[in-house]
């Protein structure tokens, strides 16, 4: 992932770390690794993930 880990959570002033993030859509559950604040858990999902993989999964869950 091109996005660096220098991104920090403004509330906790901690750099984000790669951690498991859980998703759900249309009653299906899955997870992937993304940047999160180690303290408060705030999640950062980059544009390329949203418009790539996530869009694909959304589409396939909506219909075969």
């Amino acid at each position: 992932m091109s996005e660096s880990t220098q991104i920090i959570c403004c509330k906790c002033q901690k750099p984000l770390e790669m951690k498991r993030v859980d998703f759900d859509y249309l009653n299906q559950f899955f997870h992937t690794d993304a940047l999160r604040c180690p303290e408060c858990g705030m999640v950062y999902i980059p544009e390329d993930l949203v418009e790539g993989k996530m869009a694909e999964v959304e589409t396939s869950l909506e219909d075969k």
Partner: peptide
């Protein structure tokens, strides 16, 4: 600078 959106929800 950027704007994008998705349909699935993530749990915090």
């Amino acid at each position: 600078h950027k704007v994008y959106s998705h349909r699935m929800k993530f749990t915090v």
